[in-house]
Nucleic acid binder design. Structure first.
Lengths: 240, 240
DNA sequence: AAATATTTGTCCGTATGTATC
DNA sequence: TGATACATACGGACAAATATT
């Protein structure tokens, strides 16, 4: 056992890393189980308390789950926790910087993977996206009767779902969750431009949808570029 | 207190989130201290054990550190720490899908932000990148005298540093750390193509460096596209 | 269906080491 | 030096959830 009990490093941290090494070396996959807490305590030579601190640390990062009567089970890949803590960490930065960083990031990712999205969306997806456009449209008409705030949240939610669905089937396991995450974060912000130019925003999404329904990639790509035009102007003056 | 002891969710998880809410609500900043374990136990009405599981979970996500005799201290915001746990997460999936996902992601991000990188690199950065190219070059010559394995690691490390430096100064607070993250992950893998066509790989980086030294964005952009040509063929047949 | 064993969840008490004044 | 405050670490005990027979 590689633990160094005399050392300054905290025991639970050493156990945390040893457990990861154990998983890797034994090539454990999602659904496989670790030994019981009692066995692990004996193997590592630590108290149950320390072991549990390590296990809970692994649980919170999404590596394992533990249930009474069952044991400690390896999880499926789940970037959600790490990404969401990343986002919550971002909250300490200035809001404008974070929002702009996310917008830029999303435009680059969505344009970069637009062909993958184009070739993977299904008819069912298109139906869902059509529904979102309808929601956006009806909210746009109510702009005078409703408060801008609640309008913005409903609108942004539909907007988010539109993009989420569009990229939900691409093979790249990272991109879909990262795009989803960025939209989840973005929902908390009312993008001023989108509200002020709400008809334009609706039309941008209509264009995308129509191009998809026509199965025309060039048209779709141009619609996507147009959708993000605003952000591209800021970040890259050389973009066509 | 908002804890629900009737056991719907594990106590340490509830405490974990309550503590984050506590930090947010009291507007605690880096360097500030949380109440002592004993006080927190009393406030939340949980045992020392449960509280420590929550604290250790926060510690592993980089939110706080705790030291005997001192207490529990809020950490500086540290994206790299969060991202490093994401790396270890990804390590469980060292299969082709993950590797390809990362390669794709990186090519899209680096090409999407290449202008931001181009306009932010300094002369000092270029010197560091030149050094990395030299390292790659010398390793390429030793390909017959050294084992392929250690050669690959040194080579990949220089490769990673090259790209890391290139994107280290861009304003987008997400991109630089995410690119860095992906390169850190990649170091563990010997990319077969890069090793087999090692001279080509060296030249790709030389082209990028020369274009930067010439301060020629078009040339630089083309060199970047060429650098990622391999991956683009796979992911997007429509890319020019 | 019911009893029993297994395993994690939660709590308590105590001793040790470390930092601060 | 000594005293105090604090986290680190250990061990035992019982409760609750799940699996097994």
């Amino acid at each position: 056992m590689r633990l160094d009990k005399t050392n300054r490093k905290k025991l639970y941290l050493q156990v945390f890393y040893e457990l990861q090494a154990y998983i890797r070396e034994n090539n454990l996959k999602a659904g496989d189980k670790l030994p019981t807490e009692a066995e692990l305590c004996q193997q590592f030579g630590v108290s149950r308390n320390v072991l549990r601190e390590a296990i809970k640390s692994m649980e919170i990062t999404g590596i394992v789950t533990s249930k009474p009567g069952v044991g400690i089970t390896i999880c499926e890949v789940n970037l959600n926790f790490v990404l969401s803590t990343l986002i919550s960490q971002l909250n300490y930065f200035n809001d404008d910087i974070v929002v702009q960083s996310i917008e830029e990031m999303r435009s680059v990712l969505e344009l970069g993977f637009d062909y993958a999205a184009f070739s993977s969306v299904t008819d069912e997806d298109l139906a869902v996206m059509e529904e979102q456009v309808r929601i956006m449209e009806s909210r746009a008409k109510e702009i005078n009767t409703t408060s801008k705030n609640s309008l913005g949240i409903i609108f942004a939610t539909a907007d988010a779902k539109f993009h989420k669905v569009l990229f939900s089937r691409i093979k790249n396991i990272l991109v879909s969750s990262i795009i989803e995450l960025f939209w989840a974060y973005d929902r908390y912000f009312l993008r001023k431009n989108d509200i002020d130019f709400i008809e334009t925003t609706v039309n941008k999404h209509k264009n995308i949808l129509i191009a998809l329904q026509n199965r025309d990639y060039t048209e779709f790509h141009n619609a996507m570029v147009y959708h993000f035009t605003h952000y591209y102007e800021k970040s890259d003056p050389h973009a066509k």
